[in-house]
Amino acid sequence: MRQFADIEDLSGLVGDALGAGCHVVAVDRLRGGSKKGVYRVRLDGSHPASVIVYSWAEAENFWPGAHEADPTDPFAPASGLVPFLAAQRSLNSLGVRVPQVLLADDSRRQYPADVAVVEDASGGTLEALFETDPTRAAGALGDLAEMLEVMHRHQAQHYGRVDLLERGGSASEISCERRVLDRAMRDLEEAAGRDGRIAAAGTALCDRLQELADRVSPRAQYGLIHGELGPDHVLVDAEGHPVLIDIEGLMYFDVEWEYVFLQLRFGEWYPALARPGLDPQRLDLYMLAMRLSLVAGPLRLLDGDFPDRAFMQGIAEHNAKEALALLPLV
């Protein structure tokens, strides 16, 4: 049985962040996290009215086998206080809005895991705002497009997660497109073992991936990307400005990887984020690779005890159909 944090666990931590005078009245564990716990801590008679606590405790990570991944792989599960703070510093330096860090603690004195107390940008997600206030959402979307332009124009000559590069490491001498191809082949093998339709089309999908990869020309400049930026990973603050969250995977990489994910997640709202000059060959390869990742990943997560099972199964089902639809007609 997984044990999550409660008022008693988090009161001292929040007191360290805001001062002994704050009084915690409620703690809500927010839905959706698979690598860390996210808690809204409500306060009585003080400002702010609430804060967010991130917990990277073992019990908060629902990914089976996550600790067996190669930490130098930019696609390895990104989780922990170190990548979070490195990403926070990088985005802050560019003027990209992220939650303000009120306390970061890896001492384990107040809580038996690495934790951070951050600002609660309590305007909700951009995803929810699309439904409740499309006009306000459109304004935030325009600001988000400007943020992404700043990030993607901030380039480096090596790719990799910012926390690894910050420490002098490098992901690999392998090209981005080769890295994506190798990962897609592993995802294809894994998905084929769990989905009969993918298995039946396995040879055709493998051949298509290789064909698309062969069309990609070399590149040696990489932009700063979030890597998993859906409208659920964008909060909107009280002034209507977008705030990026779940930033631990921030990396320098081909920006086409970002735009493929944006296209999938933003749907009809994507044109506000689209930009000219993207490499169509990379887009084709990365789209098929992303679809296969979104089959294999959710099914892998379901090997464990992740609670929202129908939601993850739906993601895998949808992306299996979309991956097969990308095969050329014969």
Rank of each mutant, 00 (worst) to 15 (best):
A78S: 15
L229N: 05
G21V: 03
A323F: 09
S90G: 03
A76C: 14
S79V: 15
E166W: 02
P134L: 09
Q263D: 11
I198P: 03
A220V: 11
P64S: 05
V255M: 07
L285I: 02
F4S: 10
S293W: 13
G123A: 02
W269C: 05
M287I: 01
L302S: 04
P134D: 04
S34W: 00
S90N: 05
V51L: 05
Y270S: 01
A184R: 06
D143L: 06
G95A: 13
L188A: 07
F261H: 10
R29E: 15
V51W: 04
Q221I: 07
S122N: 11
E146D: 15
Y159W: 08
P134H: 09
A145D: 04
D105P: 11
P218C: 07
R183Q: 13
F266V: 03
R161C: 13
A323P: 03
Q3C: 08
H23A: 10
G202F: 04
A200K: 12
N319R: 02
R97S: 10
L126H: 00
G45E: 07
G123Y: 11
E228Q: 10
R136F: 03
H318L: 08
V115I: 08
M1D: 14
R194L: 08
Y222P: 01
P328R: 09
S175W: 03
E239W: 04
A5L: 12
E68R: 14
R309A: 13
S11H: 06
Y270A: 10
V53R: 05
G15E: 12
E317D: 15
L299I: 07
I174D: 12
S293C: 07
L264N: 02
A86G: 14
D114H: 12
P298V: 01
G304A: 15
G193K: 06
F130V: 01
V180G: 02
V117C: 04
L326R: 14
A128T: 12
K36E: 08
L148W: 06
T72A: 13
E239G: 09
D73R: 01
G65E: 11
V101N: 08
E211P: 01
L235V: 05
P48A: 03
L283C: 04
S11Y: 00
S79W: 12
A156C: 14
V117I: 05
E228C: 09
E149A: 12
S79D: 12
Q221H: 14
D133R: 02
P280Y: 14
P64H: 05
E58L: 13
L229K: 01
V25S: 10
L292F: 00
P218L: 04
M290V: 00
H318W: 01
I198L: 10
V243C: 03
C176P: 09
L102A: 08
A104M: 14
L43T: 07
L264E: 04
A138C: 07
V25N: 04
G33A: 09
V53C: 05
Q221Y: 09
H233E: 01
S79Q: 12
D120M: 06
D6I: 07
G12R: 06
D163N: 13
E239A: 15
R197G: 03
V330S: 08
G168M: 07
G267W: 04
Q88R: 06
L264P: 00
R197Y: 03
S55R: 10
Y54A: 03
V260P: 00
P242I: 00
Y39G: 04
Q313N: 10
